Lab assay of single mutants.
Amino acid sequence: KLPPGWEKRMFRSNGTVYYFNHITNASQFERPSG
Rank of each mutant, 00 (worst) to 15 (best):
S13K: 13
S33D: 11
T24K: 02
P4R: 07
L2W: 04
S13R: 09
E30S: 06
M10L: 13
E30Y: 06
F20D: 01
N14W: 08
R12N: 15
R31H: 12
M10T: 14
L2E: 15
N25V: 01
G34R: 09
R31G: 03
F29D: 07
M10V: 15
Y19S: 00
F20T: 03
H22P: 08
M10R: 11
E7Y: 07
W6Q: 01
L2G: 09
F11Y: 14
S33Q: 12
K1V: 11
P3R: 00
Y18F: 08
F29G: 05
G34K: 09
W6A: 02
Q28R: 02
F20M: 03
F11A: 10
G34Q: 10
E30R: 06
W6M: 01
K8V: 14
P4D: 10
S27A: 12
W6I: 02
V17R: 03
P4H: 07
Q28V: 06
E7H: 08
F29V: 09
R9G: 02
E30T: 11
G15P: 00
G5L: 01
K1Y: 11
S13D: 14
S27R: 11
S27I: 15
R12S: 15
G5I: 01
W6S: 02
G34L: 12
R9K: 11
P4L: 07
P3D: 04
Y19P: 01
H22F: 13
G15E: 06
S13Y: 10
V17M: 05
Q28W: 03
N21K: 05
H22Q: 11
P32A: 00
I23D: 08
W6Y: 02
N21G: 03
N25R: 09
T16A: 12
K8D: 07
M10F: 14
A26Y: 05
W6K: 02
K8Y: 08
R9S: 04
E7A: 04
A26H: 10
F29E: 03
W6E: 02
K1E: 13
F29W: 10
Q28M: 08
P32T: 00
S13T: 14
N21I: 10
V17Q: 05
F11R: 06
G15Y: 10
K1R: 10
M10A: 11
N21S: 03
Y19F: 07
I23L: 09
Y18N: 00
P4E: 09
L2H: 01
R31S: 07
I23N: 08
Y18S: 00
I23K: 07
T24H: 02
Y18K: 00
R12E: 15
Y19L: 00
K8L: 12
G5H: 07
W6T: 05
G15L: 05
G15Q: 06
R9E: 08
S13V: 13
G5V: 03
F20A: 05
E30P: 10
K8T: 09
E7D: 03
G15I: 07
S13Q: 12
G5D: 05
A26D: 09
L2K: 15
T16M: 13
E30V: 06
R12I: 14
R31F: 15
Y19Q: 00
R31D: 09
T16H: 11
P32W: 01
Y18D: 05
G5R: 03
T24N: 06
N14E: 09
E30M: 05
K1Q: 13
R9T: 02
W6L: 02
L2F: 06
E30D: 11
N21P: 01
F11M: 12
R31E: 10
M10E: 14
Y18R: 01
L2N: 01
F29N: 05
L2V: 08
N14Q: 06
R31L: 10
S13I: 10
K8R: 12
R31V: 09
G15V: 00
S27N: 03
V17T: 07
K1M: 11
E7N: 03
K8S: 05
F20I: 03
P32F: 01
F29R: 07
R31M: 10
E7Q: 09
N21A: 00
R9F: 09
M10I: 15
N21M: 04
N25A: 06
P3I: 02
P4W: 10
P4K: 06
S33M: 13
P32G: 05
S27T: 14
M10D: 07
M10G: 07
I23A: 07
S13A: 10
V17D: 02
V17F: 11
K1A: 12
E7G: 07
P3W: 01
N14S: 14
G15A: 06
G15W: 01
Y18T: 00
F20K: 02
S27Y: 15
K1N: 12
N21F: 07
H22M: 11
H22W: 12
T16R: 13
Y18M: 04
P4G: 06
